[in-house]
C-alpha cells in the first residue's frame, strides 16, 4: 500500500459521493449516463465476486462492498426514484453498451492470465472498466453544457485511474516480481479516454467559467 494507491481509491470514492450528492441534493440526474452506471455495476460485480472467499484486507473488502452498494444506489435513483427518474436524459443516452460488453468478453476469453472462470471474469472487468466511461462522455458531448457536480464527478473519476498508474510505477520500482501488464495497458487506455475532457475541464477552471464542451 502506498500513497498513490490510497489517493486513487479516495478519489474514486469521492467521485461516487459527488455523484450521489448531485442526485440526492438536486433530485436530478440530468447529464448522467445510466448506461455508464450499469457498466460500472457490471465491472464491480464481476471483479469482486471473490469478496466472500478471498479475504485480502479489511480495506479492500470495505471498498468492494461500498462500490457495489453505491453504484446500485445510483442506478436505483435513476430508474426508480419518482422525482429523479423524470430528469434522466433518456433520449441522449443511447449508447449501445453491447458494443462494449461483447468485445471485452471476447478479449477476456483470448487474452487473460489464466484460463479459469474467475480469472476471465476478473480480466473482463478490467477491460470493461477501461471503456465504461464512453456512454457518459458521449452524453456530455451531446448535451454540451456540463453542470459543476457532473463535471467534478467525471474529473475525479478520470483522476482515480491516473493515480493508479503512479501506484503501478511505484510498485514496479519497489516490489520484485510485480508485473501486471493487462491492468497497466487497460489503465493507460482508461486514463487516455479522459485526456480531452481533462483539457476542457482545466481550461474552464483556469478561466473560472462554466464547463462547455465543443462539438
Amino acid at each position: 500500500m502506498n500513497i498513490f494507491r490510497v489517493s486513487a481509491d479516495i478519489l474514486h470514492l469521492l467521485s461516487i459521493l459527488v455523484l450521489l450528492l448531485k442526485i440526492h441534493a438536486t433530485k436530478s440526474c440530468a447529464g448522467i449516463s445510466l448506461k455508464t452506471q450499469e457498466l460500472y455495476l457490471a465491472v464491480f460485480v464481476t471483479r469482486y465476486l471473490d469478496l466472500f472467499w478471498n479475504f485480502h484486507s479489511l480495506y479492500n473488502s470495505v471498498f468492494k462492498v461500498v462500490y457495489i452498494a453505491t453504484s446500485s444506489m445510483i442506478i436505483w435513483y435513476m430508474k426508480r426514484h419518482r422525482g429523479v427518474k423524470q430528469t434522466y436524459d433518456k433520449d441522449h443516452d443511447t449508447f449501445r453498451y453491447l458494443f462494449l460488453i461483447v468485445p471485452c468478453a471476447v478479449l477476456a476469453l483470448i487474452v487473460n492470465g489464466r484460463f479459469s472462470l474467475f480469472e476471465i471474469l476478473w480480466t473482463f472487468s478490467i477491460y470493461l472498466e477501461a471503456v465504461a466511461i464512453l456512454p457518459q462522455l458521449v452524453l456530455l458531448q451531446r448535451t454540451k453544457n456540463v453542470d459543476n457536480l457532473t463535471g467534478n464527478y467525471v474529473f475525479l473519476l478520470g483522476l482515480y485511474r491516473a493515480f493508479y498508474i503512479l501506484n503501478w510505477i511505484y510498485r514496479y520500482a519497489t516490489e520484485p516480481h510485480y508485473s501486471a501488464w493487462i491492468v497497466w495497458l487497460s489503465g493507460l487506455v482508461q486514463t487516455g479516454l479522459y485526456l480531452d475532457f481533462f483539457y476542457y475541464y482545466l481550461q474552464a477552471w483556469k478561466q473560472s467559467k462554466k464547463l462547455q464542451l465543443p462539438s
Binding site: R5, D9, H12, N54, H56, S57, N60, F63, K64, Y67, V111, N112, G113, R114, W122, T123, I126, Y164, N167, E175, H177, Y178, S179, A180, W181, I182, V183
Partner: peptide, 10 residues
C-alpha cells in the same frame, strides 16, 4: 503473468 499481481488492488 498478465494480472495476477494486481489481484490485491481494487
Amino acid at each position: 503473468e498478465g494480472g495476477a499481481a494486481a489481484h490485491d488492488e481494487l
